[in-house]
């Protein structure tokens, strides 16, 4: 049978964007090692609610590591120390080594991501980057038969890998410059590697990079922290691909 664990949670509380915020400590007791990190938070919150105190606010929805809603800093790392894992898929058995210790929870911090409350942030800048050009302009109903476009398996697989980005923001939070190159590069690469995306390939990269810059995301630090923090393991290749496309687009004018 599995044992239970005990932790002190040191949590960032901030009531709205303008509030200055502070840390508060909570006890998480008798935690089963099979619980997910968010299930531990549920237990702490359920107790707070029953005492009519405001629970810790954090974002979450699918709890399957796919919607990209969840995510905060756990002991200084986005989504915690386990690689290729979202916060909702992180299980307490990974924290056995810290039994009895203190876990520190803070919101992702980056200039374009302001804190809305506690651990919840505003990531709408990502939507605006996609809106600026992260699509293929194809009207509903005007598509040719799917088999009229053959895609080489290798490009199709690489495009797929880039397309698995969940838009959680861990890459930005891990970067000392708060750069969104991994996020933007992933979409540029996904659409740039397949035939359907060619027509707009170079205008797309320009528009998306311009939007990214105007959202106050910083420049690539070249440290590669982003790919390490990425729960989907999006590779740094997408950044070099984006840089290449950007360069070509500048020649094209």
């Amino acid at each position: 049978m599995s044992g239970t664990l005990n932790f002190t949670l040191k949590v960032w509380r901030q009531n709205g964007t303008k509030d200055s915020g502070y840390f508060e400590e909570y006890e998480a007791k008798d935690i089963s090692e099979h619980m997910s990190f968010l299930e531990m938070m549920d237990i702490v919150n359920e107790k707070l609610e029953a005492e009519n105190k405001e629970p810790i606010v954090f974002e979450h929805d699918c709890r399957e590591g796919i919607c990209g809603s969840c995510g905060f800093m756990i002991n200084g790392q986005p989504h915690g120390h386990k690689s290729r894992t979202t916060t909702c898929q992180l299980h307490m058995r990974e924290f056995k080594y810290m039994d009895g210790g203190t876990i520190v929870l803070e919101p992702f911090s980056a200039k374009p991501f302001k804190v809305l409350k506690d651990l919840m942030i505003d990531r709408s800048a990502f939507d605006r980057v996609i809106q600026s050009g992260g699509y293929v302009s194809i009207r509903t109903g005007s598509a040719p038969d799917a088999h009229s476009i053959a895609v080489e398996k290798d490009s199709a697989d690489k495009a797929f890998d880039a397309a698995t980005c969940i838009g959680c923001g861990a890459c930005v939070a891990s970067c000392p410059n708060a750069s969104a190159m991994l996020f933007t590069g992933a979409k540029v690469t996904h659409l740039g590697l397949i035939p359907q995306g060619q027509t707009e390939r170079y205008s797309r990269v320009q528009e998306m990079v311009n939007q990214m810059d105007s959202e106050d995301f910083g420049h690539c630090s070249n440290f590669g922290e982003c790919t390490l923090a990425c729960p989907k393991g999006i590779s740094l290749d997408v950044i070099s691909q984006m840089n290449k496309d950007l360069l070509v687009s500048q020649f094209k004018g």
């Binding site: 699509y135 293929v136 194809i138 509903t140 109903g141 005007s142 598509a143 040719p144 038969d145 799917a146 088999h147 476009i149 053959a150 895609v151 080489e152 398996k153 199709a156 495009a159 797929f160 397309a163 996904h190 659409l191 397949i194 359907q196 995306g197």
Partner: peptide
């Protein structure tokens, strides 16, 4: 059948065989 056409045209990366077909 139209849905698949539409999704492929949008760039949805469906699984493919070695010949490049879906």
């Amino acid at each position: 059948v139209n849905i698949i056409d539409q999704a492929v045209a949008q760039g949805v990366p469906f699984g493919r065989e070695y010949g490049g077909l879906l």
